[in-house]
Design a binder for these strands. Structure first.
Lengths: 357, 357
DNA sequence: CCGATAGGTGTAAGCGCTTACATTTTCCAT
DNA sequence: ATGGAAAATGTAAGCGCTTACACCTATCGG
């Protein structure tokens, strides 16, 4: 056994030292060690020094789970989210981290890929036990879990999602309908397109629903009828959108513009169109939604509805931190924030050079 | 007080019920409740049912921190990372989640924006207390913390980073040098470029260092001298790269190609070149590194060294899970994996159409 | 010289949970 | 019936930490 240990460099003997190890080594009680670790209560400088060197020697780190059991604060907030990785996500995160960095609190992210959580009944790995509050940015987290967390008094903010009815959680949205309205109107009025494909977002998604409403309202206000075959699935996904548009092309459906419910699906549309040899924006004008950073670099540069993504992240985090620090504010149930969107005109809609880029 | 409660819909009274609340309500001991919750030990079906309905009624959820104190498993792994949000990151995550989904374990991500952690001495919010193992993908996490975690026997895998010396942690890399060598050789040999700018990665970054070596070795093997003014900072950042190239242009430095240490900096270079009216790839050929999904869509499509990003994520996670399940494998210290890279030739280097796209 | 005061430290009671072990109940072979 | 194995449940000892409280020393004004 001992000879084996020589063979390898440093097979760790898994020595996780506890507070009492430190106490013993420093010749004090655990209480004193704790006081030194937390800078709470008064400790004689000499003693403190002895403790500190014992900590050093033993490589001691407090066990956060145990600590959490006693204290109330974690100094961390959690973000529960699906679809980590997309470009939208990057901007959101930037907004969130802007605040967490300033407020010196850690950000823990739980990625719920639908597969991952749905069927396993294990407890949520992010919650009261390791965060002081939660940012919810997914539809995959069932309403009843949200409700339960809220009932237990865990601070939360929801992004792009309305809380279950009767549950007073602040939530942040963007002006989807007016944004879509502006985009589609632009296509209808400025470019006189009449057969505009809608690349719909996922079913059941609030944003998708509202954007679709904007699409219809714009048509209605212009007195243009919407042909049902123009409404196809985009699912906020490049692949799905590409397939949908390809299929439309194959079936010989005529259209002169596309309104994509998000930029990703716009990319898919561009790929499909290009593969079919259609000219952009002459043959088909295209407008997206979100204005993720890339869209500017696309060729042609994508006209799209800018959502203040980073601001959403910032705001949500600030709202959450407020809740954590000041407890539940008054009239919280009215805290529905809707951030304005803005049409960013670039080339893909058929407009010529603009100031941007 | 009571009248106030009527005013609002449901201001939660913060009732977080514990296991003993459930036990009391079901008329059993906490042990029995625990057994029901964990499906461990035998419990009379009728009792179990009573417990379950008490759980339901109270909206009870076990406190994971307390549970963690007793059990050893969390069923979650952690990913500690900087620069969440980049396109590289998305692919990596896909690889990781592929495995976590399959193995039914949760993924907790800790984003260390340099600001965030550096100066605050608070304990790492991800560690033995809430994960069974850690994926380390950042240079910002100091060596001594890594070492300590390892000494405490916490399973880890490091990505794109060599563990501190003497510490036997498996680590995964890509063949940076040979990849860079292939890319630069292609520029030198196939396209006869002679003044190739190097957009260097961040100082101290291992990948950056090795790619730079590949750049030099390719020049050496071709008998081409490297002009020092061609080595400029790219920092794996679009902005920095754009600034560097713009500056080069301003100073009138002559060059006919660029090797960017990663795709992001290649984008910056493209922007700078285009703003200056240079033609791509005729005036300046450009090659990147990583092959993030976007690079194919760039105009001109970016020639780049493909790193098997998703595979890295998958492999790393599998390695970690192995460690967790089987304990420290034999001869672990030799676990250095290097995944091959491959030059993907598209348009930006000056080659004409290829099979891809 | 004494009680008051304050700094420094230890004691021990939990936080919410799991689990080895003890105890009681059930039920079947005899 | 009845002894005893098997099933069901309870008891209580922690996991590693924090913190109210008690205790002990100096220190100091009166």
């Amino acid at each position: 056994m001992d000879s084996r240990r020589q063979e390898h460099l440093w097979k760790p003997e898994t020595v996780r030292s506890t507070i009492s190890d430190v106490a013993r080594r420093a010749g004090v009680s655990t209480a004193t060690v704790s006081r030194v670790m937390n800078r709470s209560g008064r400790v004689h400088p000499a003693t403190a020094e002895r403790v500190r060197s014992a900590v050093q020697a033993l490589g001691y780190t407090p066990h956060l789970a145990a600590r959490r059991l006693m204290q109330q604060r974690t100094n961390a907030i959690g973000l529960i989210s699906a679809e980590i990785g997309g470009p939208y996500y990057a901007a959101l995160l930037r907004g969130i981290e802007e605040v967490t960095a300033r407020e010196r609190c850690a950000l823990l992210i739980l990625s719920i890929s639908s597969l991952n959580y749905e069927d396993m009944d294990m407890a949520l790995p992010l919650g009261e036990h390791n965060t002081d509050g939660l940012l919810i940015f997914t539809n995959s987290l069932p309403d009843d879990i949200v409700t339960r967390l809220h009932l237990r008094g865990h601070p939360m903010v929801m992004l792009h999602r309305t809380p279950p009815s009767g549950v007073a959680i602040p939530h942040i949205h963007v002006a989807n309908q007016s944004g879509a309205y502006a985009a589609v109107s632009h296509l209808l009025v400025a470019h006189e397109r009449r057969r505009i494909v809608l690349l719909r977002g996922p079913d059941g998604n609030e944003d998708a629903f509202e954007r679709e409403q904007g699409y219809h309202r714009a048509h209605f206000d212009c007195g243009v009828e919407v042909a049902p075959e123009l409404l196809v699935q985009g699912d906020f996904s490049e692949e799905v959108a590409q397939a949908s548009i390809t299929e439309l092309l194959r079936r010989g459906v005529v259209f002169d513009a596309i309104f994509a419910a998000d930029d990703e699906s716009a990319y898919g549309a561009v790929a499909a169109l290009r593969a079919a040899g259609r000219r952009l924006p002459e043959d088909v004008a295209i407008v997206g939604f979100d204005d993720v950073p890339l869209s500017r670099h696309l060729t042609p540069a994508l006209t799209t509805v800018a959502a203040p993504i980073q601001a959403i992240g910032r705001l949500a985090t600030e709202l959450l931190l407020d809740q954590i620090q000041q407890g539940t504010p008054e009239r919280l149930e009215e805290r529905k924030l809707v951030l304005e969107t803005q049409l960013v005109v670039r080339r893909s809609c058929g407009c010529t050079a603009s100031s941007s880029e």
